[in-house]
C-alpha cells in the first residue's frame, strides 16, 4: 500500500501534467480576481463578507482538482501503463486507494496554492483600487479549510470516476456534463410539482455548494456544511468502491 502510494506520488511528479494544471489554475485565478476587483463598484467589495466571497474564487480550483483526479486514473488506460502498474501492484484495492489518496493530496495542494495566490492578489488589488483589505484570519481560515476539504473529496472522486469510465475524454465530458447540465436538470424534475422532492441537495454539485456556503442557509434545499461533506464523501466512497470492483473484474488487455 505504501509502495503503491509512493509510486503514485512519483508518477505525478514525473510528467508535466501537474505543471500545466498549475499554470492553467494560476491564469484562471488571476483573470477572475483582476476582473472581479476592477469590475466591481467600490462599495460592493468593501465589507469583510464581500471580500470573503472574492476569496472564494479559489474554490474554482476544485474543478481543476477534479480534472487532475480524472487524468491520474484515465491516463493509465490511455497510455497503457495500467499493465505495468498492475504487474508491480497486483492488488486492485491498493491501486484504487493509492490513486484516491494521491488525488486527494494533489487536489489539496493545487487548491491550496490557488487560494494562496488569490489571497495575495486580493491583498495587492484591493488597496490598488482604494479599498482596505478587510479579510480576517479566523473566518478566512474556516472558509479555506472547507474549500480544501471539498477539493480533497473531489480529487479522490475524480480518480474513482476515471477508473470506472477509463476513457479520458469520456470521463471529463461525463463529469462536467453531470455538474453543469444533468444535475440541474434532475433537480428541476425533482422539484416539479409531480414529485416535489429536495433529494437533489445530496447531489455532488449541490453538496459542494453546501460545503462552501458562507453565512445563512435558510432553505430546506441546502445541506449544512457538515452534511455537504458527508454527502460528497458518500459519492467519493461509492465511486472508490465501484472502481475497486470494476478494476478487479475487468480484463486488462
Amino acid at each position: 500500500m505504501i509502495a503503491a502510494l509512493s509510486s503514485e506520488w512519483l508518477k505525478l511528479r514525473t510528467t508535466r501534467t501537474l505543471f500545466w494544471l498549475l499554470v492553467a489554475l494560476s491564469a484562471l485565478m488571476t483573470l477572475i480576481v483582476v476582473a472581479g476587483v476592477i469590475g466591481s463598484q467600490k462599495h460592493s467589495i468593501t465589507s469583510a463578507k464581500d471580500q470573503l466571497d472574492l476569496l472564494g474564487i479559489g474554490s474554482l480550483g476544485i474543478f481543476i482538482a477534479l480534472i487532475m483526479g480524472l487524468i491520474v486514473s484515465t491516463g493509465e488506460f490511455r497510455h497503457g501503463t495500467i499493465t505495468p502498474t498492475l504487474l508491480a501492484t497486483p492488488s486492485r484495492t491498493s491501486i484504487v486507494i493509492a490513486k484516491a489518496l494521491a488525488g486527494m493530496f494533489f487536489a489539496v495542494a493545487l487548491v491550496g496554492l490557488a487560494e494562496g495566490l488569490v489571497a495575495l492578489e486580493l491583498a495587492i488589488a484591493l488597496p490598488a483600487k482604494g479599498v482596505d483589505f478587510a479579510i480576517q484570519g479566523g473566518p478566512a481560515a474556516g472558509f479555506i479549510g472547507r474549500i480544501l476539504i471539498a477539493a480533497a473529496l473531489w480529487g479522490a472522486l475524480g480518480s474513482g470516476i476515471g477508473i470506472v469510465i477509463r476513457n479520458q475524454i469520456g470521463a471529463v465530458v461525463a463529469s462536467f456534463a453531470w455538474l453543469f447540465i444533468a444535475e440541474g436538470l434532475i433537480i428541476a424534475i425533482l422539484h416539479s410539482n409531480a414529485i416535489n422532492s429536495n433529494a437533489g441537495r445530496f447531489f455532488p454539485f449541490q453538496a459542494t455548494g453546501a460545503i462552501l456556503t458562507n453565512g445563512s442557509r435558510n432553505s430546506a434545499d441546502i445541506l449544512s456544511a457538515g452534511g455537504g461533506m458527508a454527502a460528497l464523501g458518500g459519492w467519493m466512497a461509492l465511486f472508490t468502491i465501484a472502481a475497486v470492483v470494476l478494476l478487479s473484474r475487468r480484463d486488462v488487455s
Binding site: T15, R16, T81
Partner: peptide, 25 residues
Amino acid sequence: AVLEASGFHPGRKARNHLRVLARAG
C-alpha cells in the same frame, strides 16, 4: 514480464518510468 500493448507515459523520462515501477514493485 514484457507484454504487447503495455505502455509508457510519453511525457515521462525512461529512468523515471523505471523508478515508478521499482517503487511500486
